[in-house]
Simulated assay, not measured.
Amino acid sequence: MSLRFDVDAVVLDIEGTTSATGFVVDVLYPYARERFGELLAARGAEPEVARAVDQVRAEIGEPGADAARVEKVLGEWIDEDRKATPLKTLQGILWAEGFARGELVSHFYPDVIEVLRRWHADGVRLYVYSSGSVAAQRAWFAHSPEGDLLGLVSGLYDTVNAGPKQESGSYRAIAADTGDAAGRLLFLSDRPGELDAARAAGWRTAGVRRAGEPYADAEFGDHVQVSGFSEITLRARNSS
């Protein structure tokens, strides 16, 4: 089965869509957890780190929380899989450095990279919208198993510069930023709530149902579904 969309741009979720959630949970989460203490102790005065720490204190209602307490909270949030902005910021700092040092290499499903290259060559612009920070997204695409893929991507969005992923206003903000008409944007995600929000903003949507992923058995309603990117054919306005 192949689905065809006449669109100018595709916005990609990462976890469960382009890449395995298990890699994030089993590799990236422990990598960051092991390094939070050192980051907070040695670099707590850096503006981005200090701002994230203040956000953690504000969220837990403890303005005087010390580094040990903040580290404990971050670990609890990881266990809860909580999409908290300061957690994503601090994880993103550590992951970006790990990728840059060659200690980490990102994961992509086998069908993804080849298809993304084809879509890009065909004139379809590609964007990323993930709960992971922009810094983490940039590192992820720059350090793939097939090298630097950032040249394929026209923009990166997270919960800071776009907003929560299950709110339609976030998708309107992205469309305004890219300059695309809502109906010419396609969002690919494994999470029905995100697809609902994108469609409420007027976007085209497709659910990605990959075996073994946490949302593989979710109810996608009337969103069209695929099991991989190779099942999607795109045609941009400027395609021949």
Rank of each mutant, 00 (worst) to 15 (best):
D190T: 05
E213H: 07
N238W: 13
Y129F: 14
E34R: 15
L39K: 04
D180N: 01
S130M: 05
Y215E: 14
G147L: 13
G221L: 03
H143F: 05
Y29S: 06
D222S: 13
E219Y: 04
A198L: 08
R101G: 05
E76Y: 08
P86C: 12
E46N: 04
Y31P: 05
S2D: 14
P145D: 06
L195W: 11
E59P: 05
G179K: 00
T85F: 08
E62P: 04
F99D: 07
L28I: 03
F5M: 02
F187I: 01
S154K: 04
K88Q: 10
E71N: 15
R204Q: 15
T18N: 09
A42F: 01
E146S: 12
Y157V: 04
D66C: 07
A45Y: 01
A216K: 09
V11E: 00
P30N: 06
V128K: 09
G16P: 05
L195I: 05
E103T: 02
F36A: 03
I78P: 08
R191P: 01
R57D: 03
D54H: 06
A142Y: 06
A50D: 11
Y29R: 07
L185N: 00
G228Y: 05
E231P: 05
N161G: 01
D8P: 00
F23E: 14
V134K: 13
F229Q: 10
G147E: 10
I113S: 12
L87M: 11
D13M: 08
Q55E: 15
Q137E: 12
L87E: 12
I232V: 15
A58F: 03
I14A: 12
L28R: 02
A175I: 00
R172F: 01
T159R: 14
A216Y: 07
D13S: 13
A176I: 01
L186W: 00
E219W: 04
D180V: 00
E194F: 02
F141Q: 14
F5A: 04
A182Q: 02
L28M: 10
T233S: 15
T17Q: 09
F108G: 06
G207E: 08
R117C: 10
W203I: 01
A182W: 02
R35G: 02
R237L: 09
G22T: 15
A176R: 15
A211N: 03
S19M: 08
D222N: 09
R35H: 04
I60C: 07
A52N: 02
A211E: 15
G123P: 03
R43L: 01
A142R: 14
T159Y: 04
R172H: 13
W140R: 04
F187Y: 13
V53P: 02
P214I: 10
L116M: 15
G169F: 01
F229H: 13
Q55I: 02
L94D: 05
G16R: 11
